[in-house]
Nucleic acid binder design. Structure first.
Lengths: 433, 433
DNA sequence: ACAGTTTCCCGTAAATGC
DNA sequence: TGCATTTACGGGAAACTG
């Protein structure tokens, strides 16, 4: 029960989706003398790959034969295949139970073939080029998984065509993986991951730094397969990728501004906030929500000046579609029945006024109209009354007593009388008419 | 900037979308003696229709030739074409500027051909059948428009193949159109339109009942073309259809329960509410929002017991995706800075407690957790604090003074002191740290 | 039964055509 | 240039399939 979001997909080369168009630019790196004939190139998929059992077979649709053009700038030759499409070739035995791998671990090769005639006698030279291994998917929900394969492959091998790579994928060093992870963020935003953020991720994959063996490597499983993390079963990569998606679609400006700490453990967050003003908060990604979600954690002091920390249920894509994070931070309230609502968020860590940090992204008008505008002649209002969608947490009245405590006892007492008075008023209405 | 909703499209026969599969069931109504050969049927589109300029040409893809089956129950013959698809045949002159009509007014015919051999000498009888005119669209956003064509055609002619129908579409009687409109609602829900609702629609199309000519007919333009209605330009049918969509996707249960008056003018709504309890409301569809939206209108009394009416900015699909209408009605608040929020909605017209009418559809937990659950050992909260998304209208504090007025003046005065006290408290925080 | 995979198709956005 | 129409494709849900 939800509604359409912005669509804008990540460019992820080497992942092809059946039925979607793709483009390949092919360049001939050897410089040739001018030819007196056209150099035809043909694109094929999985040429010479016939011995793999249970592996899907595909065809290339679209104009798969093109002629190389000579580029004016440097005389080198190139050809761009546009509007190619893959589709399934349904054959017996294709993708059967013998298939050793998930489709997103199944690697394929695009090949390009041409023939060069050298000299008059007609010596034919077969030219061949192949892409790096590609992953073919049939639905975008496989993209995340497919991209994990592409990343791992290219991070860990320089073999151009090791189609058996995922039979036993090698392990990665943190120094390699951290670069790749940071790059994922910098390719979607203007900000990669900071050392602090990467440290949090390292803790998740390798354990606390103090206990770490510097030679420890990260196995594919630990990166990709769902792992049990206190009750929840989550794949590290899927979690990261869901957050990437959330950033791209809903948090891009805030992320680029650097106001999202994001990857920070709750413990560390509380340590940072401990000596800060009440109402100081920071933004953290949920560690347990698979679909990508962001929460704010803030500090309050109770009567005894003991710090207390609170975090709101994380905001998912659905929440952020309804109200942006900046607007949410601006208007978030704690409410209790018959109390004046409290706005608990005041300072972005370490001590930036929230309006200073987020003000430029506010979109809602939260000013009430002048009384004149609402009241129109004859009791008829004319226009509509503006509404605003906000987040509130309903809390026990005792949580709002910090402020009540500041009131003189006689006011408090009269207020309590007033509260019961409104209840009577409501009850009275039931009987009228 | 929105997010995916339930998809569940209306079944709208006689509208075909290119690239989507469709099914045709064909029955042979004449009972034949048992044949000693198979009766082959071929499906074609726009056979014999060659003389229309600028009209798109299509092909039927899929198995367009099938054999008739004899149904066991009654020995009659039938065949079901499944997984047929239409796609464009790009020909010169197709869909050019000469095309006299919009694509959704362009009518096409599906035909089915077979040949029957009677007797030994081999007398061939050509059998032909044609569908009612169909509309072919290439995008779902043309569905609404296409369905308007199908409705108008079948409401106003019994000609089986008047492909020129929209060259000069006839006018409709209200008695016909009102039945068709009500049927649109009853085919999506369990409730058609009431006399009162139809009356409101008749007022829109024909003007106030008192001034109406009983023989007045509704021209196609008035039903289908965008008309200027106080500043906004809206097509009557598009407006109705957007509301149908809103009902199907977000208001189905409420509509079926009959709690949505929906089609009622603001004037009439205010008349109905005038002598009702303060806080009595009813639900109305926006008359000016093209995309389909619903608002609540309620009554309040000011100090002098003069009724005042308010309506909130209508809720669109996007709003209802975030929070259902029932939850919205439950939690809608009027707020002013430093005031206790007010919940202005109490009784569904005429005088049903709102929880009674909407309670079974509430999904949110609005109870605060016990204080114990929030406070965890060591000042660490452990879990997340639940949030709730609600609608609020920010109003001038004077609007919430009805209740304040009920408080003794000394409490009021002390409260005001308190209000400024919190402001100081906030200002103080700015300097700390 | 079931999980991985594909198909179907709505609905946003962009491209195309006239 | 603007509007009608089509294409592209993400994403939700259902269908498929071993």
């Amino acid at each position: 029960e939800r509604q359409p979001c912005m669509t804008a997909n990540l460019q992820r080369p080497l992942v092809l989706k059946t039925g979607n168009k793709f483009t390949v630019l092919l360049r001939f790196l050897v410089k040739l003398p001018v030819l007196n004939y056209q150099l035809k190139v043909k694109a094929v998929i999985d040429k010479d790959v016939t011995d793999r059992k249970g592996v899907r077979k595909f065809n290339i649709l679209g104009t798969n034969t093109k002629v190389m053009n000579t580029e004016e700038s440097n005389g080198s030759m190139a050809v761009e295949f546009r509007d190619l499409k893959l589709n399934w070739q349904k054959v017996a035995g294709s993708r059967n139970s013998e298939a050793p791998l998930l489709v997103t671990k199944e690697l394929h090769l695009l090949s390009f073939e041409s023939a060069l005639q050298l000299g008059q006698p007609g010596i034919n030279i077969q030219l061949k080029a192949a892409s790096l291994p590609v992953v073919v998917i049939s639905h975008v929900d496989q993209m995340s998984s497919a991209w994990a394969s592409v990343l791992w492959y290219n991070m860990l091998t320089s073999e151009p065509k090791d189609l058996q790579f995922f039979q036993s994928p090698p392990e990665a060093q943190w120094s390699q993986l951290s670069k790749v992870l940071s790059w994922q963020f910098s390719s979607v935003t203007t900000q990669g991951l900071s050392e602090e953020q990467l440290g949090t991720l390292a803790d998740k994959l390798l354990g606390p730094e103090a206990e770490r063996n510097p030679d420890e490597r990260i196995p594919w499983n630990k990166f990709y397969e769902p792992q049990r993390v206190n009750k929840k079963v989550i794949s590290f990569w899927m979690w990261i990728d869901a957050i990437l998606d959330l950033i791209e679609k809903h948090l891009l400006a805030l992320w680029n501004d650097g106001v999202i700490m994001g990857f920070i453990s709750l413990e560390r967050a509380e340590d940072l906030l401990r000596d800060k003003c009440p109402g100081t908060f920071l933004l953290r990604f949920s560690e347990s929500c698979k679909e990508g979600a962001i929460s704010f954690t803030w500090i309050e002091h109770d009567m005894n000046h003991t710090p207390k920390f609170h975090s709101v249920t994380p905001y998912t894509k659905k929440d952020l579609c309804a109200v942006s994070l900046a607007d949410t931070i601006r208007t978030y309230k704690w409410m209790a029945a018959d109390n004046i609502p409290d706005e608990p968020l005041h300072f972005l860590y370490p001590h930036i006024q929230k309006d200073e940090a987020f003000g430029k992204y506010y979109t809602q008008n939260i000013e009430p109209p002048e009384p004149m505008e609402v009241e129109k002649a004859g009791g008829r209002t004319g226009g509509y009354i503006q509404k605003m969608i906000i987040s509130v947490s309903v809390v026990h009245p005792s949580h709002l007593q910090d402020k009540l405590m500041l009131m003189p006892p006689d006011v408090l007492e009269s207020l309590e009388q007033f509260v019961s008075l409104t209840d009577v008023h409501d009850a009275m209405n039931v009987d009228c008419q």
